[in-house]
Amino acid sequence: MLDLCVLTKLISTFTMNSSPHHTQSPPLNSTHEDIDERLKNIDSKMVDLIKNEIMHKYKNLDWDDIAGLDYVKSIIKEAVVYPLLRPDIFTGLRRPPRGILLFGPPGTGKTLIGKCIASQSQSTFFSISSSALTSKWVGEGEKMVRALFAVAAVYQPSVVFIDEVDSLLSKRSESEHDSSRKLKNEFLVQLDGAATNDEDRVLIVGATNRPQELDDAARRRFARRLYIPLPEINARILILKNLLGTVCNDLDESNIQEVGNQTKGYSGADMDILCREASMEPLRSIPPDQIPHIVKDKVRPVNIDDFMSALQSVRPSVSKDDLAQYIEWNKEYGAIRQLK
């Protein structure tokens, strides 16, 4: 049976080469937007700002670059990637959701998933944090959101990744500032798709570490809400192997298994910090006055003792109480099939 990643690539190649329904986005340096109807009422300076600071050229990513999360990846491929590749097939009831929410502890790969969606669906990738939107463009946030989605529509298929989306779409209150309320309302309009054509292929991916702080209206508009949990043992081992591939080491399978067993509760980011700390141990064993002159090949490989030492100083960053909140929120609003 064909692997889904392989199938994605085959579909991608087919749609690029032969599908009459595929419309290629203009190149990043194109002047196409100057004459596009969707940008006629948009400030050209904002368009340039979006192209220079928010629209990104991503490196090609494969689902294998993301350790574990098999259920999440299968849902995303079915609900998002394939529809973006084949809009002629995914119509009517099969039409993809306008927005998906990725929630869970920090450091679990939510941003990487957003980039992989764009890569696998051959989409233009737009990335912005809510904090930047609310602070960098004070008073201009509403216009910036409108401009962002107009540009995304021009360069479709597009993936708009919003980090820290909870700070942008937090629960509304009577004390809320007028500019904040307008920004929030504009974003909700865009998430609804009311300001765009029904056929536009623009996906909004929101990422948050605090899903419980989202406004109810925003939560409802994210039709798919996927829990991105801490990596399980097999995923931690894969992360270890990937990271160790960048440094000379003499760890065997049993050593890697031991480290994997001792890192329960570590996020992907925690695993990265752990490996970095262990990789420094061989250098610390060298007298400081010799480091400027030592031959690289004379630095000993990283070993299991280095990891045992690193484990004493690098601890999990996510508390058990926080994990319990994520699991509870997932039970109420997320894809409960993820729970075991």
Score class of each variant (00 low, 15 high):
205 V>Y: 12
152 A>Y: 00
62 D>T: 04
323 L>Q: 14
267 S>Y: 02
145 V>R: 03
306 D>K: 04
62 D>I: 02
173 S>I: 03
85 L>T: 07
278 A>H: 02
159 V>T: 10
73 K>T: 12
314 V>W: 09
68 G>Q: 03
284 R>D: 13
92 G>S: 09
51 K>M: 09
124 T>M: 06
20 P>T: 12
222 F>M: 05
68 G>Y: 05
336 I>N: 03
261 N>F: 01
246 T>R: 13
265 G>S: 01
326 Y>I: 04
246 T>S: 13
120 Q>C: 05
5 C>G: 12
107 G>Q: 05
304 I>C: 08
76 I>R: 07
287 P>G: 09
340 K>W: 01
83 P>N: 07
53 E>I: 02
154 V>E: 08
48 D>M: 07
57 K>F: 01
143 K>C: 02
9 K>L: 04
116 C>L: 09
139 G>R: 06
38 R>I: 04
21 H>E: 15
152 A>T: 07
292 P>G: 07
177 H>D: 15
83 P>R: 09
148 L>P: 08
75 I>E: 15
216 D>A: 14
282 P>E: 12
61 L>K: 09
180 S>I: 05
232 E>Q: 10
111 T>G: 06
122 Q>I: 13
20 P>R: 15
198 D>W: 06
291 I>M: 10
319 S>I: 05
304 I>E: 09
28 L>T: 15
138 V>M: 13
71 Y>H: 12
336 I>R: 09
93 L>I: 14
32 H>M: 04
99 G>E: 02
169 L>I: 04
26 P>H: 11
257 Q>T: 11
258 E>L: 09
266 Y>G: 00
235 A>Y: 00
113 I>V: 11
293 H>I: 09
214 L>Q: 14
269 A>L: 01
229 P>V: 03
125 F>V: 07
3 D>S: 08
241 K>W: 02
143 K>R: 13
322 D>V: 13
18 S>A: 14
2 L>I: 10
150 A>M: 01
324 A>V: 08
16 M>H: 14
221 R>W: 09
12 S>I: 06
335 A>Q: 12
136 K>V: 11
67 A>F: 00
38 R>P: 03
64 D>K: 04
189 V>Y: 10
335 A>L: 04
113 I>M: 08
290 Q>R: 14
153 A>L: 00
280 M>L: 14
106 P>D: 11
2 L>A: 00
254 S>H: 08
259 V>I: 15
301 P>L: 01
51 K>N: 10
159 V>A: 07
329 W>C: 08
187 F>L: 14
284 R>W: 11
122 Q>P: 01
45 K>E: 15
128 I>N: 03
149 F>Q: 05
170 S>D: 13
310 A>N: 14
6 V>R: 04
282 P>G: 11
15 T>A: 01
248 C>Q: 13
97 P>T: 14
201 R>A: 13
185 N>L: 05
194 A>S: 15
271 M>N: 06
20 P>W: 07
296 K>Q: 04
168 L>V: 09
12 S>H: 03
19 S>W: 07
46 M>A: 05
141 G>C: 12
217 A>T: 15
331 K>F: 00
205 V>D: 15
224 R>M: 09
127 S>I: 00
74 S>C: 10
100 I>C: 09
63 W>P: 02
220 R>H: 02
303 N>T: 13
183 L>W: 02
91 T>I: 04
265 G>L: 01
181 R>C: 06
211 P>K: 10
177 H>V: 04
261 N>H: 06
15 T>Y: 07
7 L>E: 15
